[in-house]
């Protein structure tokens, strides 16, 4: 990934944030604001998925780590009486810690094995949340308090929560952008594009992937902590594998090669469009699934690959080659 121009990126990001900051002025629909807030949460989950994808790993467990953040934060506040503002970073830390322990075991296995293992981890987590009374059982946790007020600012309104998640999202994006444009991000994509070659360039695949696993989990944990205190109710099944699949869809729909913009676009569409079309909750997954299947067949690079694709059609096949999205294939040195 090219470094691009961080100054330019910062300016654009600043402008977008300024625009978004005025959003509550234009609407007084609480429902609309709820959707915007959920979009931000979902973007953070998509970012987490995409970070692992940038190292050539596909996770089916993003929602599980989101859940760890949410439960950690809720329990720290409910049972230990901590302030939300302390629970928030602790939740991210805890999520990264769990990812470290789990990652040491599963990150070594690439490809399908990793997909299945993350899925199983996700299922186990849901069972743990549901089985133990400590986590509130299958009924979940209720009456989680909203973030503690800072001086005169309270976090009970949609608007206040919106600004909070906007800041978290911004921090998330800035941090990930910094990583992607650094030596670390370059090593990650080297692993994704050709693991064997990356190794001969002295990239320690295991360490770099473990780091990505932990950092991406921390991002999801942060989103989880916010979500717990925003939604104020937690239930194990909010964090099941089904949600993890949705997270994948955000990134795939937006474009897998776009580690930041992809989840932003994808999560916004998946969160908003079914609601705006007033699709019933029962048939919405069928619709989303169908769209995804067609997408993978006809536009594997996602929405953000469209400009390049259009150029491809207009100027003939030599103009540009549509980028394939390679999932790394760790081939052993073949026989001669």
């Amino acid at each position: 990934m090219n470094r691009g121009n961080p100054k330019k990126v910062l300016i654009i990001l600043g402008c977008v944030c300024l625009l978004l900051a005025f959003l509550p002025v234009f609407t007084d629909s609480r429902y609309f604001m709820h959707l915007v807030i959920m979009t931000c949460v979902n973007i953070m989950l998509g970012l987490s998925f995409s970070m692992l994808f940038s190292t050539g790993l596909i996770t089916m467990g993003a929602a599980g780590f989101w859940g760890i953040g949410a439960y950690t934060s809720a329990l720290l506040v409910l049972k230990a009486g901590l302030s939300f503002w302390i629970a928030l970073p602790l939740a991210a830390l805890m999520t990264a810690l769990v990812a470290f322990v789990v990652g040491i075991v599963i990150v070594r296995a690439p490809g399908v094995a990793f997909i299945i293992q993350t899925m199983v981890v996700n299922m186990i987590l849901v069972q743990v949340f549901g089985h133990f009374e400590f986590f509130g059982g299958w009924a979940g946790l209720l009456d989680i308090p909203a973030p503690n007020p800072i001086g005169p600012i309270t976090f009970t309104s949609k608007t206040a929560n919106y600004y909070l998640i906007l800041v978290l999202l911004l921090v998330n994006i800035l941090g990930f952008y910094a990583l992607y444009t650094s030596r670390v991000g370059r090593a990650w994509s080297a692993i994704r594009l050709n693991a064997r070659l990356a190794e001969t360039l002295s990239v320690d695949i295991f360490r770099y992937r473990l780091a990505a696993f932990m950092i991406s989990a921390a991002g999801a944990g942060l989103a989880g902590s916010f979500y717990a205190h925003y939604f104020q109710t937690l239930e194990p099944n909010m964090f099941n594998v089904f949600k993890s699949i949705y997270v994948q869809i955000y990134s795939i729909l937006g474009g897998l090669n776009f580690y930041i913009l992809g989840p932003v676009i994808g999560a916004a569409i998946i969160t908003f469009v079914p609601e705006l079309l007033r699709v019933g909750k029962e048939i919405e997954p069928i619709m989303t699934g169908t769209v995804l299947i067609f997408l993978v067949i006809f536009l594997p690079g996602g929405i953000l690959s469209l400009p390049e694709r259009i150029g491809f059609f207009r100027n003939g096949p030599m103009a540009s080659s549509p980028e394939k999205v390679p999932v790394e294939t760790e081939k052993k040195e073949g026989a001669p």
Binding site: L174, V184, S202
Partner: peptide, 26 residues
């Protein structure tokens, strides 16, 4: 790295000698 330019391919080869603390990247 088939999808990358020749320049970026060689740049990746430079990994071992590239000194840049992550926190400074941004």
């Amino acid at each position: 790295f088939m999808q990358l330019s020749v320049f970026d391919n060689v740049f990746n080869g430079f990994h071992r000698h590239y000194r840049e603390p992550v926190w400074k990247a941004f």
